[in-house]
Design a binder for these strands. Structure first.
Lengths: 207, 207
DNA sequence: GTCTATAATTCGATAGAC
DNA sequence: GTCTATCGAATTATAGAC
């Protein structure tokens, strides 16, 4: 069937692109390197995606969407609860979904994590496109934080949440050398690491 | 005098390179763009620096050295004190020198800050070269932290300090949009921001 | 949908005159 | 030290056959 081969080609390109973007960055990855890795023809990229930039956006969306969806799901649970959530509860809902990628331990998930971190440290002009995928969710977490911590100015909560994102990105990028997770990188210890991280940032959030 | 014009050409190149690297990254900046900005000849870069990569390293060193020197100076004061320093004291000595760049408020210092943050989010292979300029200093701060917090494992202190660096880098990179410093960006309020940041991370460091 | 071939541009780097 | 001119290779993107 024609459709099957198309899907395979498209996915092969996306997989190869994600892997190379994650380790070499947007500018450091040539379309020729991608087609070599994916074992497809150069023109196939233009047929399926139109340009290098649009391919990048497709990769970002594929990685970001399940994470954002899970963040919003956990946020919704907190919002629908009768009592006001605690700071650690909010922050756990925020940081757990992206860190969950690591739990599988497969090569594929390692690449997801690395790309997820890498795409947010990109520059001109693709950085804006990546940011866009996370902005509204981050906004919603910021909103609930203003409810939990009404005595803090929204500006302060905003830059603190922004620094938490920076830590998250760094954690995801560090998977390679990952001395960070050396004591936590086994599957069952990811939750323990998440707890450590949440504790770390929760105290700073309150004071 | 020949020497003067040489120095001027060299410095013109370094200044232009720092500015462009800071906003477009290493791969996003062409040598032709640098010579256009610096108003010098293309071949001058090769005469004075040898290659694009070596030029990048020179820029990194120029920005990093005064900051590292100041970090070590403040660390030495703490080490020579009779009593064991507190966590906020150690962290203040660590984060103040890089954030001090912002205090001047000039265009020049804004570029320094932006490059300082940007060069640490670079990829292949220049990232390693940039890291190298900060590694030994970070190691020394890590060492004193193990003395201040002997009940914490060195691994844990290492990744926490690493996350603090990530926050620092993010803060420096955010200068452009800088809603983060919107309430703090006046010259006299930098110290106030430093205090906020140190408080933020100190609590997380202890628990 | 997939392929070959190639256009059009840009890049880092070098040779050699002055 | 500074310049012009250029090499050789790589890049994104497209045209057109199948």
């Amino acid at each position: 069937m024609t459709k099957n081969s198309t899907i395979n080609t498209k996915e092969k390109i996306i997989n190869a692109a994600e892997k190379l973007f994650a380790s070499m960055g947007f500018l450091g990855t040539s379309l020729r390197a991608i087609v070599r890795e994916a074992d497809v023809n150069l023109a196939a990229i233009y047929y399926h995606f139109g340009s290098k930039e649009e391919l990048f956006i497709v990769v970002v969306k594929r990685v970001a969407q399940p994470i954002v969806r899970e963040q919003l799901r956990q946020l919704k649970i907190l919002e629908e609860s009768e009592k006001l959530p605690s700071i650690p509860e909010v922050l756990t809902a925020f940081v757990t979904p992206p860190l969950r990628i690591l739990q599988q331990g497969s090569d594929e998930s390692r690449i997801h994590a690395q790309f997820m971190g890498c795409c947010r440290t990109e520059l001109h002009p693709v950085q804006k496109k990546a940011e866009q995928e996370f902005r509204s969710t981050q906004q919603r977490f910021l909103y609930i934080l203003t409810k939990v911590l009404p005595e803090k100015s929204p500006q302060e909560l905003k830059w603190k949440l922004d620094l938490i994102v920076a830590m998250l990105v760094r954690t995801l990028n560090q998977i390679e050398e990952s001395e960070m997770l050396s004591a936590h990188n086994s599957v069952e210890n990811i939750d323990e690491f998440v707890q450590h991280l949440v504790t770390f940032i929760s105290y700073g959030m309150s004071y």
